[in-house]
Design a protein around this nucleic acid. Structure first.
Lengths: 225, 225
DNA sequence: ACATATTTTTAGATAAGACTAAAAAATATA
DNA sequence: TATATTTTTTAGTCTTATCTAAAAATATGT
């Protein structure tokens, strides 16, 4: 029955690596203890402990009070977790009829399943998707991301338009809001008016016109046309 | 990021419940501490600890030195784990091209994923299968099993035949042996000769004839014709 | 620059789940 | 039935991953 499986890394270790992976994007200095604690909803002291362990395992570079950086090894592991997370999200939406606001928590569990064959076959089964249901890129086996040119909707000027290609915030509240407004990936959005006062936009999508706040426009990615 | 999910039961608790569930089949007294320890490849003292905890949670009935029995509640949880395990096995074989000897360890991990929607949708996606790739029944949502009439191949007499419907041993060694001999679920097997001396059988399957040991015949289920 | 505030680390505690060794209970055997 | 053997439980230890509270280091403001 229980053929004891010794995983390379615990789920907790993987979660720390993933958090650091996300936090170090577009930043050139080390990721701070507090930033990790906040992302993982834990205490700074717990982070210090774990960070020492990950450092001993050569997954991150850590010097006291200096924040941390992933090593190449650490990056490899972290991106493999992100890859699994996003492939599972595609599976849930495409095959099991989940909506894009329901997939996160389940994928958060599925990403820790240890089986190289499983994830390879899942990739094949899904037809080698390059993006998850929120438009985020799926790392390939080597951890490489297909970079897609994208801008925040808020950067569009009056009368410019773009295709909706992703979200900056994937909270279910935001995603459900988008659903309600009929805003989904692939839709064309044109900026009809721009309010200088509050940064809100009056846009057209499909045949409809609606106005959206600056906060929304700052959390929607479009591909400029 | 980490929306902390508090699972009803830990993976460890679930594994104990599942072990007890399997061990109490066809037995009318309590399952012994040692039996559980052996099944889970752990120590009797660890079992005693866990058994106390499960008892406090009203999942099992436990009195010192008396062995344990699942309560209805415990049975419900245990069968839901078995249900998940077997549905995942079907998924792996039918959709991801796993062979029947490769699915166990992965399903052992997947069975602990917490998401009622996930397992419901998986069930739908797979077309409500009633058996896993080894011919074992998949409990329905209420824990009920569709009982299938089956006998050990070793109980067939000379010139009787049956359809292969399951295995008693699902170790990968045994399953790979069956693959090698072309014995898969659904195949018709006829007993041409029976050796009294060692209980070995000379059988026909497809167009081929082969002899198999008593041990094999004691681990293959057939449906008599 | 230096006092204050913030961040990070240390020290010590806790809970879960496992282990070993020894004690206690139950079962088997002579 | 008395003794031996096996099974089960208890007691105490260990590891992982947390936590709180306090100390140390770094950063900030005037």
């Amino acid at each position: 029955m229980s053929s004891k499986y010794v995983p390379m890394f615990t789920s907790s270790e993987e979660n720390y690596l993933k958090a650091i992976y996300h936090l170090e994007i577009g930043v050139d200095k080390g990721v701070s203890t507090n930033a990790i604690a906040e992302k993982l909803v834990t205490k700074a002291s717990s982070v210090t402990d774990m960070v020492k362990k990950l450092s001993e395992k050569e997954l991150i570079i850590y010097k006291k009070y200096q924040g941390v950086t992933l090593t190449n090894f650490g990056k490899k592991i972290a991106s493999s977790i992100v890859r699994k997370h996003r492939l599972w999200e595609v599976f849930l939406v495409e095959k099991l009829n989940f909506s894009w606001d329901e997939v996160h928590d389940v994928a958060e569990q599925l990403e820790h399943i240890k089986s190289p064959k499983l994830i390879n076959q899942l990739d094949i089964f899904l037809g080698f998707p390059s993006q998850d249901p929120h438009g985020d890129p799926i790392p390939d086996k080597d951890g490489n991301l297909k970079v897609v040119e994208k801008s925040l909707l808020s950067t569009l000027l009056k009368n410019e338009s773009g295709i909706c290609v992703g979200v900056n915030d994937s909270s279910s509240e935001f995603l459900q809001f988008l659903d309600k407004k009929g805003i989904t990936l692939g839709k064309q959005i044109k900026v009809l008016e721009k309010e200088n006062f509050d940064g809100s936009l009056f846009i057209s999508i499909d045949q409809k016109k609606l106005s959206i706040s600056n906060k929304i426009a700052n959390n929607l990615y479009i591909q400029k046309q």
